[in-house]
Amino acid sequence: MAVMSYLEAIRETLRQELRRDPRIMIYGEDVGVRGGVFRVTEGLQAEFGEDRVMDSPLAEAAIIGTAIGAAVNGLRPVPEIQFADFIFPAANQIIQEAARIRYRSNGDFHVPLVIRAPFGGGVHGALYHSQSVEAFFAHVPGLKVVIPGTPYDAKGLLAAAIQDDDPVLYLEHKAAYRSLKGEVPSERYVIPLGKADVKREGTDVSLITYGLMVSYSLKAAEALAKEGVSVEVVDLRSIRPLDVEAIVATARKTGKVLIVHEDNLTGGVGGEVSALIAEHALFDLDAPIMRLAGPDVPAMPYSPPLEHAFMVTPEKIQQAALKLARF
């Protein structure tokens, strides 16, 4: 089995999917000749031609709006938003159109569409190249929101998103692109959307997380194991729909839950996960549900000390999990 980076896993999946289904089409800003600003789509236009891997004008609402139309007319578009921070001009198209079309047409229309967008910080991207936007979109019925935390999951989740008949927002963590590596099978496989994955078994504390924070939580768990604390790490993988069963199971198992995300604390995924645990497993808990998240400031600053202060790190996760273990 080949070892691939998170980025390579995404690129190889796109290549495999383009070969598999002639209806699939990629477009967005700089995705063609340049192969994307992160080079995720590098080489794809050369292999598949301009009709299938197309540079588009710099206009996010048009990228998503036209993708919706193309999807209705038989294509399977996989548009890219260059940075998740720039998705908001297209928010009306995503929320009001893509996510509502099946419902508002009483099932007559549907929109098979995968929107790829790099997100997240810790890459010196400052306020407008570091954002975590998932909570805004996780609020929307009709949309699915998927965030892989490993190269293996990146492949299986992307293939599943592309074969899904509903719109999927597929968020790729920028800091994970080249830093995360792992074994990725060459054959096609799909990971069902809405299914979490226990990345590490443990008995004392559960860390429920997603995205880059999965690898950070695994580092924290490794360090805590040396201190005799057994940590379970649950990777949500999809934040809409959430895997209620997996969330409740780990809460019942350890009785202590720390939810970790880089997105701002208030109104974040942590609040929803916390409510689910309170509704379904309150009397199995041995401690209050805790959240470790990005601070409630508008976005991540540029200057290194400020950026570091914003970021959730393996050390911060370790400290918070230890505090919870000792509760």
Binding site: A61, G65, I68, A70, N73, D108
Partner: peptide
């Protein structure tokens, strides 16, 4: 909206249908 009649479903926020139409044409 009427899929069998090739009439695209529309919403109330105006003008979103024009980008959809460009996408239908792209296909």
């Amino acid at each position: 909206g009427h899929r069998a009649r090739r009439i695209l479903t529309g919403s109330s926020p105006v003008t979103t249908q024009v980008t959809h139409a460009a996408g239908l044409a792209l296909a």
